[in-house]
Simulated assay, not measured.
Amino acid sequence: MYRKSSGAVGFSFNRLITNAFPNFANDNPGEDADLTSTQKDLLWVHQLGAAETRGRSPMTLDEDSAFSAGITTSEKNSARIHKELVKNRITDPAAPLGIDTTRITQRLPHELAFVSIHAQRKTVGMLFFWEQEALRWRLLDQEESELKAALEDEGTSAASKQELKVRLEGVSMRRGMRPSSRQEEAESSAHQEAHPPQYS
């Protein structure tokens, strides 16, 4: 955890990853393991698009995920990265979130030796980022299911149903927000909390 210039508290995967994989720090400390805002959006767009075309959960990383996120410029290497992640069950459709970052070990850099250390670092950053996205998606699914169940309950009043419909629309809107949009919204809220309006 660290304090941003806006006053908000942030979390850096780079700090976590550098501690977990000391050799990463010896490559280029200036290179951050965190995906950039653009990379997060590109990955998010790919995941949702691939879910529609391939008939799978949007939370399941595939052979094109690393390529789409700009971690590697080679589709072949992207597929190899995915193969190693599946082999080590880091990417596992059977896992609750489709990703299990607890399976990341210090052997991962060796297993991804066919790409640069920078790409290895970004791959780990992608995994931690997407695990958080998968958790967010699951919570939205749960909220949506609960709201729909309440709507179908015959004992729910008309006024309550109207409120539930508004909340369902809110869930849909949150589901459709790109990571960068959420980040901007969070930073704006943090700024407003740190600098409340002054009234004379």
Rank of each mutant, 00 (worst) to 15 (best):
R121Y: 04
D100M: 03
I99M: 07
A51M: 11
S116N: 08
E31A: 12
A79R: 08
L16R: 04
Q198M: 08
L139E: 15
K87G: 12
A194I: 06
A20S: 15
N77Q: 13
P96E: 01
V124H: 00
E144G: 02
S6L: 06
P29W: 00
A8L: 05
A8W: 05
K87Y: 01
K40C: 14
H46M: 03
T60Q: 12
E169I: 01
E52I: 13
R103I: 07
L140D: 10
Q142W: 04
A119Q: 11
T102H: 10
L112E: 00
T72V: 08
K165Y: 15
M1D: 14
G55Q: 11
D92C: 02
P179C: 02
I17C: 05
S6R: 09
N19W: 09
S200F: 05
P29G: 15
T72K: 08
A134V: 08
M173K: 14
N88A: 05
D100F: 00
R89N: 04
L139Y: 06
G55Y: 04
A190D: 05
L61H: 02
F129Y: 12
T105D: 15
M177Y: 12
M126E: 10
M177G: 06
D32H: 10
W130V: 06
A158P: 01
L42N: 07
K148A: 14
S6W: 04
P58R: 08
S65D: 02
K40S: 15
R15C: 07
R107Y: 02
G70C: 02
E146I: 07
T36A: 06
Q106S: 15
A95R: 00
A194C: 00
P109K: 01
R107Q: 11
P197M: 02
G30R: 04
T123H: 00
E163H: 06
L97V: 03
G170E: 08
Q47V: 07
N77F: 10
R182T: 13
Q198G: 10
T36E: 01
E146F: 05
T36Y: 00
K148S: 11
S200L: 01
R138E: 13
A8V: 05
N88Q: 12
E133P: 07
S181A: 14
K87W: 03
S57E: 05
S5E: 09
L151Y: 11
A94R: 05
T18H: 11
T72P: 11
